[in-house]
Write a protein that binds this DNA or RNA. Structure first.
Lengths: 358, 358
DNA sequence: CTGAAAGCGCTTACAG
DNA sequence: CTGAAAGCGCTTACAG
């Protein structure tokens, strides 16, 4: 009943208030709150009822202090695709909210500037770091972190070293699956727009494409492979080159959605309808994919899911680190998904295309 | 020297270690850390040196517990433009990082679903809420929050009630400024794409446009005003209608960047070069504006700045709320900026256009 | 300008 | 299954 009046005059319900209300010790209340087993069912119920009645909610600072289990984690990013960053952030926050963990963020200009940003994080009392691409693939950044003795996890790392924690999808397999699908749709002359050469994922995606084409007995013609840089503009320009080839492709597979959107724009400019006259597909399923028109068929990376997974992994690692326990590096590989929207269709002149009209 | 070994066996430097190292009381160290004045310069220096040497960094949980000043704040959003959300998040996190505040996030399907989400936030021990648009303009949501006794701040609210805290720009003035600029560039036949009717900002932006046109003695022809919904697709469709009018406009002012990007796509499809044959401008300066090509001329809302401002405002409000002090609602209006990129140019046939060729 | 004491709200480690 | 004691690392409120 009588609420405690804090030193500052505040008005907060504590574990003691609940204990008094029920007629047990604070310890018992603590046990109930934390879902420990050895409490009589009857007392548990009474405590729970009281918690509800008094609208008690635990003070996280006090808990952290007592358990020594609090953590602040940092997110380091550079060169962010906003859409990617946004989904990453949402996934991370979902998890940190539940864990009572505070999130710090730092950006840097590529792996070179990482060292300063990392120092800043450490100085802010950061206990561990999440690395987003392309940082997650940088051996340089990994080395700095190791030297600092700072736990870390890489998200969407295409080439995670065996001794570091990471959460990724299999870029090769994903590109493989998308290419197969294009072939199923009857496409034979398929062009590819590569991603930024500084990201290993670019290479894996290309290899996935190439390998599928070869297995299907199709040739990958050099003039139908264009270099892009993951930007809309680079996709726009690359598509222009590709579509002006003599053997015009019936489909373009771009290594990310921004480039695919650029390719669609070029197609429209050249008077080609998408998907009727040209299929264009992307990769990532970022917001860009569903905001342009026609909406893009693409590969979905479960970014938000990967993000929360990496927070959990990082927290485990931090706990182990504090306890002086060794921690075995985990390399999580999540499932991707093929998302078919309006930018893809059967190739012109294939039987299926004919059926469509029938 | 001798580091304290925590109950859990951890290894942390505390204020006591620093005190011992220097030969003063923990209290003095605390004073130095917190930058209080009444400490002899000499002792201050020694303490600071020791902090550095021992790599001491304060335990935030302990500080929060002692000061009773911790806070968890929630961000509520619905119907998010990823680009907007992302920048908002970044601005918020920058501020919460410094303040040692934890951020919780909740989404809901418009004002109708807000009540459940708000309960969830409250249940998680949230002390205050930041509302992003269109929630920030909802009197319904504001009422729920007031009834809960929960402090809150609205970001980018177009029509903030006088009794609630908000941080916004002046949408009317911004639209006014952009329209003026178009007129300066020699445009006379200017089309406008309205934003979603459920957002008050849409109306203000249109009024800013209309008012400027009238003051300049230009007529706003009804068939040159199209309804949009803030989506790329709606801009795409609206532009098609506008560009097929008999008196084709030389410029299109879209109420946000997504619609402007859609309008550019339509222009390209119709074989019109942007900006040579058609000027297209947007609003917001989200990532979309600089990722499409040509990059969009637009109005910059300082979202990240508005976000950190709103965190500060919210924290002040929470402190006042706790102390039982009254808190006067603050309505901050930040400056917008006109960002001129490649999608705008002088109108065809104007003297300026002629000069350009000379 | 400096310090000893008490307290913030919770949990760990024991004891029963 | 339950509780009394001590402690987490810091600060407030006093006292000198």
């Amino acid at each position: 009943m009588a609420r405690k009046v804090g030193r500052r005059g505040g008005n907060i319900v504590t574990i003691h208030d609940v204990a008094r209300h029920v007629g047990v010790s604070p310890m018992t209340v603590s046990r109930v709150i934390n879902g420990e087993k050895n409490v009589r069912e009857e007392t548990r119920a009474k405590v729970l009822a009281s918690v509800e009645a008094l609208k008690y909610s635990p003070n996280l600072a006090a808990r952290s202090l007592a358990t020594q289990d609090q953590a602040r984690i940092g997110l380091m990013y550079s060169n962010p695709s906003v859409a990617f960053l946004s989904e990453l952030l949402l996934g991370i926050l979902e998890e940190t909210s539940q864990a009572g963990t505070q999130l710090l963020i730092e950006s840097c200009d590529g792996p070179e500037g990482a060292s300063v940003a990392l120092e800043r994080l450490k100085h802010s009392g950061c206990d561990g770091v999440i690395l987003s691409p392309p940082l997650s693939d940088s051996t340089r950044v990994a080395k700095i972190l190791k030297d600092m003795g700072m736990p870390f996890v890489g998200v969407a790392a295409a080439r995670p070293a065996t001794d570091i924690c990471s959460v990724s999808i299999d870029d090769f397999k994903a590109a493989y699956a998308m290419t197969r699908r294009l072939i199923e749709l009857g496409h034979r002359t398929i062009a590819f727009i590569k991603g930024h050469p500084n990201q290993y994922a670019s290479q894996l995606r290309y290899e996935g494409f190439e390998s599928t084409m070869e297995r299907a007995g199709l040739t990958v013609e050099p003039q139908l492979v264009a270099q892009g840089y993951f930007t809309y503009r680079s996709g726009f320009d690359a598509a222009e080159r590709l579509l002006n080839q003599k053997n015009r492709p019936t489909a373009i597979f771009a290594s990310n959605d921004d480039m695919a959107a650029g390719a669609v724009a070029t197609a429209h400019r050249l008077g080609l309808e998408v998907p009727e006259q040209l299929t264009v597909v992307g990769f990532d399923d970022t917001a860009m994919a569903s905001s342009v028109w026609p909406e893009l068929t693409t590969v979905r990376q479960p970014i938000s899911d990967m993000a929360s997974m990496s927070v959990r992994l990082l927290l485990d690692q931090i706990r182990a680190h504090r306890a002086g326990r060794p921690f075995e590096a985990v390399r999580e590989v999540r499932d991707f998904a093929l998302i078919e929207r309006q930018s893809s269709d059967v190739a012109l002149g294939t039987p299926e295309a004919g059926e469509k009209d029938a």
